[in-house]
């Protein structure tokens, strides 16, 4: 444990140092987020979603350098895409009839939270005069309670990591406030599901520090759940 503790803590501190290494780091990260790698991955993922009609899809693959505002909208749309996935996941799980009473209650409650996140994020994107990302069609391997809860834990832990990774890229205080208010709820879901599946509620060794995930990594990880 000591070994993993110092290792993971060093990783956390390293991330903090990278983020804080210069005054313009937030802008620098935004530029990266608006750059080809992430925007490209996001665009490719969205293109593979299908179903929504091309004309309805938000323009996320902008070649032009991001202003703070377009950067925040990209992040809001990224978060919205994750919430669509989570919301769909719980909808399918709840209607699938494979859960026992207790697990079903939890899935219903968490699913309702995800629906509210979707509503709030859609409204936030629209209020800024931007288009919400097209709702992806999803596919999840749901073959019994154990697998469903395991997948739910995986998705929620990823969601929490994604919000944590994106928070530092956000420019607007309001958008940041909204992201934080969702982040800790995703973390609560993740902890509850970890416990339900016999794992540690705080799966970061003894570091005491959550591990963030960057947008492109998150997009790669959710790709198997997007129906093409």
């Amino acid at each position: 444990m000591e070994h993993s503790q110092s290792e993971a803590r060093a990783a956390g501190t390293g991330a903090m140092q990278r983020l804080g290494s210069d005054d313009s780091s937030r802008k620098r990260f935004l530029k990266m987020a608006g750059g080809t790698a992430v925007a490209g991955a996001f665009a490719a993922l969205l293109a593979s979603c299908g179903g929504g009609g091309d004309e309805e899809k938000a323009e996320v693959d902008e070649a032009a350098p991001s202003t703070a505002q377009t950067g925040d909208f990209k992040i809001l749309n990224f978060a919205l895409m994750l919430e669509y996935l989570e919301s769909d996941f719980y909808e399918k799980v709840v209607s699938g009839g494979m859960l026992s009473r207790e697990a079903l209650e939890m899935a219903k409650t968490f699913g309702e939270h995800e629906r509210e996140h979707v509503d709030t994020l859609e409204a936030a994107v629209k209020e800024g005069g931007e288009k919400p990302v097209a709702r992806p069609r999803t596919k999840f391997p749901l073959e019994g309670e154990e697998q469903i809860l395991g997948l739910a834990a995986q998705v929620e832990n990823l969601g929490a990591a994604a919000y944590l990774g994106a928070a530092g890229l956000i420019q607007s205080e309001d958008v940041l406030g909204t992201a934080l208010s969702i982040h800790s709820i995703e973390a609560r879901h993740a902890a509850a599901l970890n416990i339900a599946t016999g794992k540690e509620p705080v799966p970061f060794g003894d570091t005491g520090l959550a591990v963030p995930a960057e947008m492109d990594a998150v997009l790669r990880m959710v790709k198997p759940f997007i129906a093409t």
Partner: peptide, 11 residues
């Protein structure tokens, strides 16, 4: 952020 996520999990 890294701390608050852990606090949320504790809660």
């Amino acid at each position: 952020g890294m701390i608050v996520q852990v606090e949320a999990r504790h809660a």
